[in-house]
């Protein structure tokens, strides 16, 4: 299972726009396996954190109603080119991943 985050941050007039694509199944726990008829256990991202130069600017709490392979975007002020942006997530099974990028 690939745990990947595609992360981009671009600044315009001091405001940075961060865009991220996370690879994650986001199972709701309500879907049934067609072959066995059993419910597929829930597996979804619960928290997503966005950091600008190590300082948290966004902390999202997600439910299973966020789409599979989630897309998330947010903005923050006071950004300049070369700043570090970090995005990390953790799911209900204790899995997690993070990625960093530079503002451009």
């Amino acid at each position: 299972m690939a745990k990947k985050i595609r992360l981009r941050a671009s600044a315009k007039g001091g405001v940075a726009t961060v865009k991220a694509l996370i690879t994650h199944p986001m199972e709701t726990g309500n879907r049934k396996d067609k072959k066995t008829g059993k419910k597929i256990p829930a597996h979804f991202i619960q928290t997503v954190s966005g950091k600008h130069n190590g300082k948290e600017v966004m902390l999202a709490e997600w439910g299973p109603a966020v789409s599979k392979n989630p897309y998330v975007s947010f903005q923050f002020a006071g950004a300049s080119k070369g700043d570090t942006v970090e995005l990390s997530w953790s799911d209900n099974k204790g899995g997690s991943a993070s990625a960093t990028t530079k503002v451009r």
Binding site: H52, G63, A65
Partner: peptide
């Protein structure tokens, strides 16, 4: 939706009033 809440974004510090995502 059976459970209406999809996502809650806590914004701190210099964050702007903007979020985007995709929901079911």
């Amino acid at each position: 939706n059976a459970n209406p809440l999809a996502a809650n974004f806590n914004l701190k510090g210099s964050a702007k009033g903007f979020v985007a995502t995709r929901i079911k």
